[in-house]
Design a protein around this nucleic acid. Structure first.
Length: 243
DNA sequence: ATCCCGATTGCCT
DNA sequence: GGCAATCGGGATA
């Protein structure tokens, strides 16, 4: 038997309502191969099995980067599905989304967390502060770092043949009964009612699922009273809503 | 030109 | 649990 590389998901997979895609992405494996030496360790391949994702529904979704229409940064979201939207966050992190739906809907799924299933050594090099392997891709910026995703991958076509970044095809990797949902993490502008968009989805009992934090209000300028600390952190449990 | 603040993380007490 | 780091996007003047 010739051993071909595992195939990437077809574009049609992403060309559907964003919540459907989000559900189907859980349990699947994202692979990124870098042949250059930009990492200082010669590049290589890292694979992450997704355990947590978050859906964003385009201009009508107040929590989406596309909420204020098309801008240079969000242009990729308004393009065809099956591409990566990678953005710079808090002046120091990169986070990766997969563009979904028909072209122009600007919907996308944020890759929030996963389990490194291949390329452990390279992932550890890229995430030197991770204490345990379970923390390597536990969080959107951590996941992007472990995979080696950044500015260069913004706009990358995951469905192109031999793309360096892809989602592996495979049989239904998770049943809907294993999927839990809850409010999105860190998203403000939802009127304090995150329940309006319970579009964070994760797999039951996975240790790699990121901690939940409510949107943290910015501290005021000097002189103002410090804002009440709202960085509540909790482990997602079955107490949150189910599908 | 300037201001505000973010789809976060990790270190500090 | 609190909060600093760090900088670019988008709104406002």
């Amino acid at each position: 038997m010739g051993s071909r590389p595992p195939e990437s998901l077809p574009r049609a997979f992403f060309d559907r309502p964003v919540l459907d895609v989000a559900r189907d992405l859980l349990g699947r494996v994202v692979v990124h191969t870098s042949d250059d030496g930009v990492d200082g360790v010669g590049g290589g391949t890292v694979a992450v099995r997704l355990t947590e994702v978050e859906a964003y529904a385009g201009p009508g979704d107040p929590g989406s980067h596309a909420a204020r229409g098309r801008t240079p940064r969000t242009a990729v979201m308004f393009g065809p599905p099956g591409h990566a939207y990678v953005y710079f966050s808090y002046g120091m992190h990169w986070c990766a989304n997969l563009v979904c739906g028909p072209e122009g809907t600007a919907s996308a799924v944020l890759l929030r967390a996963g389990e490194v299933v291949s390329g452990l050594e390279l992932a550890r090099h890229r995430r030197p502060t991770a204490r345990k392997d379970v923390d390597l891709a536990r969080g959107p910026a951590r996941l992007a770092a472990a995979l080696g995703l950044g500015q260069v991958q913004d706009g990358a076509d995951l469905c192109a043949p031999s793309s360096a970044l892809r989602v592996l095809d495979g049989r239904s990797p998770s049943s809907s009964s294993e999927i839990l949902t809850g409010p999105r993490v860190g998203v403000s502008g939802e009127g304090g009612d995150g329940a309006r968009y319970p579009w964070r989805l994760w797999l039951t009992g996975e240790p790699t699922v990121s901690a939940y934090r409510v949107a943290a209000p910015r501290r005021r300028r000097a002189g103002s009273a410090p804002t009440t600390s709202t960085t509540t952190t909790t482990r997602p449990t079955d107490e949150e809503s189910t599908q």
